[in-house]
Nucleic acid binder design. Sequence first.
DNA 1: CTGTTAGCGCATTCAG
DNA 2: CTGAATGCGCTAACAG
Lengths: 347, 347
Amino acid sequence: MPRDEIQVSGRVTIFDVAEASGVSYGTVSRVINNEPHVRETTRKRVMDAIDRLGFVINRQAQSLARGQTHVIGVLVPDLGTGYIGEIIRGIDDELDHAGFDLMLFTTHRRAAKESNYVASLVQGVVEGLVLVLPRNPADYLGVLSSRNFPHVLVDHQGVDTTSPAIGTTNWQGAFLATEHLINLGHNHIAFITGTMDLGCAQDRLDGYKAALSMHHIPQIPELIFEGDFFQNSGVAAANALLDLAVPPSAIFASNDVMAMGAMDVIRHRGLRIPDDISIVGFDDIPQSAMVFPPLTTVRQPLEQMGRVATQVLLAMLKNPETKNSRQELPTQLVVRSSTCNYKDRAG
Amino acid sequence: MPRDEIQVSGRVTIFDVAEASGVSYGTVSRVINNEPHVRETTRKRVMDAIDRLGFVINRQAQSLARGQTHVIGVLVPDLGTGYIGEIIRGIDDELDHAGFDLMLFTTHRRAAKESNYVASLVQGVVEGLVLVLPRNPADYLGVLSSRNFPHVLVDHQGVDTTSPAIGTTNWQGAFLATEHLINLGHNHIAFITGTMDLGCAQDRLDGYKAALSMHHIPQIPELIFEGDFFQNSGVAAANALLDLAVPPSAIFASNDVMAMGAMDVIRHRGLRIPDDISIVGFDDIPQSAMVFPPLTTVRQPLEQMGRVATQVLLAMLKNPETKNSRQELPTQLVVRSSTCNYKDRAG
DNA sequence: CTGTTAGCGCATTCAG
DNA sequence: CTGAATGCGCTAACAG
């Protein structure tokens, strides 16, 4: 089969190299892996043969023999907004430094729904798993924990799990953002929540409430609208809030995407931002600086979250005894142009 | 080592299953792979053992033995804007249907710079490669072609390559967008180019020029500004263009991100969009509908590009004889609110 | 229908 | 310092 020869021109094995350089393939293996006890002339001879034949190692086989793949898996819900992209950037960069490769899995896959899908990854192909923003992690978290498989959660403070996790100070971020509005003179501040089954959404709501009560501002239930982190719920929320008998002078959304949805509504109603109504978001996704007016928001260190998560995971890989840590990275209020002093419109 | 037992609780092999169910492991293999010639009772017995022991197959070993991994690699420059994210969504979805997994590689990795990095992937771990927006593909395209390794380019119409590629009708998109402005009465239309070593950037420029000459509008060199697809170059371009003795009444940017940079500048100078100046972008990234005013732009079917690229790749995998195809998917003008009729400001 | 055998390509002992 | 042997976990003929 001459076709075979063409197609598999890369099928040069360690054995071919051994033959070409007149040594045993054990020695070739030693050269490949940079082991010390090889005579320099031998090493040179082998190297030459490798170059000449165009040998590249078969990682599949290496992994099998060695029992480790140097691949870690990243489970994400989606890649739509750039939010996840930032996190992945951090993960990827850190993996690169450690010489690992990245396998990406999106949970909206049909396959991901099968309970044993994760199990089959874990068995062989992937040495560890970073779970980014897992929506219903119950599905696989059980398997992972029971198998004692290295994994770490990013941005999920579910209370139900004992897995290591990296989050941010959601409560504090929401508190500071709310306080920022209060300091600007607002006292009728609306809040759009996220999906309330997520820990981070709960924390943000709590931070908002805490700031209000700290400043002796009454909580008005009508001003709290339950959203779902998608733009449409921001639209719905703004419409509902602006229809109130006494509409808010400021809206704090649990993420930037919903904030942008709200901004849209506000503009369509002929109101000005921030003159008529102030808006604050959460996340600081890339486009938040690009919308008009640039959005005041709470910055999450997304890239760093990915980075830290990866470091934790790699540490667990090195030393399985590593304690399950939970870390919170600091959020930061970024004041841009969507907020300003409260002006009594009647005045 | 009792610790070993805990950690490797997943280390149940096909052999263990065979022993537990009293058959040879050849039979177990048959059951796993759903091969027909197995007696129903035997199958049942094996299945039971599999469940009982919690056996999951080791894909690493399976891949080695079978000679195929069912993993394809996706090479991307970055994940910042959601542009790439859309493409990946298409790729991932299509791979899912075909039962393949996705390995993600970012070309900004240090490792990616090493010439043999791609080679080492190609040898063993990955069965095919989707190259998204490769900036300087010369580095690895050579190896891929010479090894006859299945790969497909997305959104790169470099003329220098014979690899299969999926692109869009950049020329036509740019032509239609320019014509849209002309039809609105603009005849002093500026153009911000992309990185000119990319085929798509060249095509867009050509489309712009073609529309002008078609409508007998003179090309004015000062109105063509060379950008690089990043926001900052949109800012620089807008500043330069607005400082012209006779500034343009409309700006067409080669992508949305640069268009948004330009919008920023325009607003900072106290000009209104589109009343004072119309803006058109290219790509239709998600946030284009969300900025203010919503951006008129040329839509690229990003997800579909990923989808089609993947289909082509999978077809090549099935049948290596498949001819190297180059496809162009249609772009589409999306008119939103950043463009309007030309109004003579002096009038 | 099922057991047996020989690899897949490499790492890793253990001798020499 | 180097060669030979054994196994990683599974597939794929080949018998029976």
